[in-house]
Simulated assay, not measured.
Amino acid sequence: MSILKDTTLTEQLIHIRDMTVSCHIGLTDEERERPQRLRLNVTLTLDPQATPNDAIDETINYGTLTKVVRQTVLENRVRLLETLFDQVVEACFFDDRIKKVAVKIEKLDRYPDVAGIGIEMVRERN
């Protein structure tokens, strides 16, 4: 007897894990003078997608997602990680199938005795 026969797939998650991007961000002019390395983790939640034709348009394109996140960070002109979060989340809702976006952003080099410091938040589509 198959265990899967009695289960229901309720959501699908797509992840970007440990993307590292350098950008100018920070509260002070001094902090923004040189690029800072950020590590991003992004998780998209969507309804389970059937892929009967084994075609990319039946799901979210990982390459598109990665490009959107990287470009959003590189084009930022903000001071706060919280504002950058808003920009990344907004960019990640590029497809109507995406229901929820979770983003974790860390500054990697801000404090010499800390591996990373940052934020993690989740936003759902209304």
Rank of each mutant, 00 (worst) to 15 (best):
A55R: 14
G63L: 10
L84I: 04
A55N: 14
D54R: 12
T66C: 12
R70K: 12
T51G: 12
T83A: 09
T83F: 00
A50P: 12
V73Y: 06
I56M: 15
L84K: 06
V69C: 11
L81H: 05
Y62F: 14
Y62T: 06
A50C: 07
E82I: 02
T64S: 03
D57M: 12
P48H: 13
T66L: 13
P48G: 07
D54E: 15
N53D: 15
P48C: 10
T72D: 09
R79G: 05
L81T: 01
E75N: 02
G63Y: 09
R77V: 05
D54I: 02
V73D: 09
V73C: 02
R77C: 03
D86M: 07
D57C: 14
E75G: 00
P48I: 01
V68C: 02
T83Y: 04
T51K: 13
T59Y: 03
D57F: 13
R79C: 08
V73E: 08
D86A: 12
D86Y: 04
E58M: 07
Q71M: 04
D57K: 11
A55M: 12
T83I: 03
T59K: 00
L84S: 08
E75A: 03
P52N: 08
F85E: 02
V69E: 09
L74N: 02
P48W: 14
Q49E: 13
I56Q: 14
P48Q: 10
I56H: 09
R70M: 09
K67R: 13
F85M: 00
R79W: 10
I56V: 15
D86I: 06
T83D: 00
N61W: 05
Y62V: 07
E58K: 08
P48R: 11
E75T: 01
L65M: 09
Q49G: 08
N53K: 11
A55K: 14
K67F: 11
V69R: 08
Q49C: 11
Q71G: 00
L81M: 06
T51W: 13
D86F: 09
K67A: 13
T51S: 15
V69K: 08
V68L: 14
N61H: 14
V78N: 01
T66G: 14
N53F: 08
